[in-house]
């Protein structure tokens, strides 16, 4: 059984016509105590199947602890929305913790489009400031799917 119905699949497929550059999603699950790992994995697989500019790789938080640490992923389900350039993964620091369903499904699709465009759309002033940062900035945006 699929999570995305025909209507949504069709809409996402249309939106994905705008994809420019390749996007790579890293999924991190875990075997125990994860209510939404299976669904999130399936959701990501279904989304990735809708464009040949999208690829996805599956990891386990424990079994692939080194990769998880490399990408600073400490929650499952966890997603990294990264770019792919000439087969190399380029991390823009974009993460999801929890299932991107409901309203957050739209955020996921928007993030894929954003990464694909390779343009943050931030103002020149913001970009200048961020370039001058001397210590890391870690933002966590709490959301609910409804």
């Amino acid at each position: 059984m699929t999570l995305l119905n025909d209507n949504v699949t069709q809409q996402v497929r249309e939106v994905f016509q705008q994809l420019k550059e390749p996007v790579h999603i890293l999924f991190f699950g875990q075997k125990a105590n994860c209510d939404y790992c299976d669904e999130t994995r399936q959701l990501v697989e279904e989304v990735a199947a809708l464009s040949d500019k999208l690829s996805v790789e599956m990891y386990d938080l424990q079994d692939d602890a080194e990769t998880a640490a490399q990408y600073h992923v400490d929650k499952a389900p966890g997603l990294v929305i990264a770019a792919k350039e000439d087969g190399q993964i380029q991390d823009f620091g974009i993460r999801y913790a929890g299932i991107p369903s409901g309203h957050e499904f739209t955020s996921l699709i928007q993030d894929v489009l954003l990464v694909s465009s390779r343009d943050s759309s931030l103002s020149p002033q913001t970009r200048d400031y961020l370039k001058s940062l001397k210590e890391p900035v870690y933002l966590q945006v709490f959301v609910t799917p409804t």
Partner: peptide, 28 residues
């Protein structure tokens, strides 16, 4: 230098409580 994580508050209630999240979106 910048990392941003969307956190589904219902799935990670301890973390949401730690930062006093009462409404969304809430950015820490």
């Amino acid at each position: 230098m910048v990392q941003a994580e969307m956190v589904e508050a219902m799935e990670f209630p301890l973390l949401a409580n730690q930062y006093g999240v009462h409404g969304v979106p809430h950015t820490t």
